[in-house]
């Protein structure tokens, strides 16, 4: 086996720029959030400049990596580093969602039943006597004062209304997009770039469609169901889980859109050389699996 040199760039300006961007981003975000409701706050400008710097730096950083790859600087070993790196990054994302699923599991199985007087720590019922445990929690323990009441939850409405139930359509759209991105992968492996672009385009369109449906669902929740972030633990878990998932769909969709534009505009990727796309598609499948979990534990059960 002949040895290839492992490419280590001499120096790079991107990391320190990205660290500065991140600093502006979080200072701006924290300031903006603390100043919510104040009219004379300038923190939002820091936030926007941080976001812009973040995006621009990432653009140039990725561009540099892609150019190094095209110039043949990266050995097979270096490419393997990217593969491992992406896999472990996705694992960290899995653990991020695990925290929120863990919270959902805990409130459904422990804190809400205990507040309702059930189980080993049912003594908690003395806080709000008369509160009965149910899921979804429509009426919160401290009903009406601290937290607004929702009229309706997003849970499974029964077979009769299933076709009018948005989450079902969301599921169909997202699961299909996982299939189409796989078709795109297969097309690429068969060296059919035209078909690759077509299927990847369909996937990006489905991603956009999903985000649209999700926005519609949020609109319905806020406008018609009275279900908000403020409506107790059901609203909290519902919006945080679906919200972070939606955010990840947007990130994954953006990655795939970038891969599509690389393929269409610059004719990047060939049958043996497409880890950028593969990484984005892994991420997409991960987002899809999270949705299946959400569908089960947030909507159905």
């Amino acid at each position: 086996m002949s040895y290839q040199k492992y490419y280590v760039p001499e120096q790079s300006k991107y990391p320190i720029y990205l660290a500065i961007a991140l600093f502006l981003l979080v200072m701006g975000a924290a300031g903006t959030i603390n100043d919510l409701g104040k009219t004379d706050s300038n923190s939002a400008y820091i936030l926007y400049s941080g976001l812009a710097a973040f995006g621009v730096t990432l653009y140039f950083w990725f561009r540099a990596v892609i150019r190094e790859h095209i110039a043949g600087l990266d050995s097979a070993q270096l490419q393997q580093s990217f593969v491992f790196g992406m896999a472990w990054f996705i694992f960290s994302e899995v653990m991020f969602f695990a925290a929120f699923f863990g919270a959902l599991f805990y409130v459904r199985n422990f804190s809400v039943p205990w507040l309702g007087g059930e189980g080993e720590k049912g003594l908690a019922n003395m806080l709000w006597q008369g509160f009965e445990s149910s899921w979804p929690v429509i009426s919160t323990p401290d009903a009406g004062s601290a937290f607004a009441l929702a009229d309706k939850s997003m849970s499974w409405p029964g077979w009769g209304k299933a076709l009018m139930w948005l989450p079902l359509w969301n599921t169909i759209v997202l699961l299909s997009s996982s299939v189409t991105v796989h078709f795109a992968h297969l097309a690429l492996k068969n060296d059919n770039k035209k078909s690759f672009n077509k299927w990847l385009g369909v996937t990006v369109a489905l991603a956009l469609f999903f985000v649209g449906l999700q926005a519609l669902e949020y609109y319905e929740a806020y406008a018609h169901y009275g279900l908000t972030l403020n409506s107790g633990i059901y609203g909290s878990t519902f919006f945080m889980l679906t919200g972070f998932h939606g955010f990840h769909v947007m990130m994954g969709g953006l990655m795939l859109a970038i891969m599509l534009s690389r393929s269409v505009l610059y004719n990047h990727f060939d049958p043996h050389n497409h880890f950028g796309f593969e990484a984005a598609s892994w991420y997409w499948h991960f987002v899809d699996v999270v949705w299946v979990m959400l569908f089960l534990f947030v909507y159905i059960l």
């Binding site: 959030i33 925290a99 809400v112 937290f147």
Partner: peptide
């Protein structure tokens, strides 16, 4: 703190102990 959720607030069905678990 800022957006009205009740993960760690029993009044909304959450639990301060949940914070400790996480």
């Amino acid at each position: 703190i800022h957006f009205g959720t009740s993960f760690f607030n029993a009044a909304g069905g959450g639990d301060p102990v949940l914070f400790q678990h996480i």
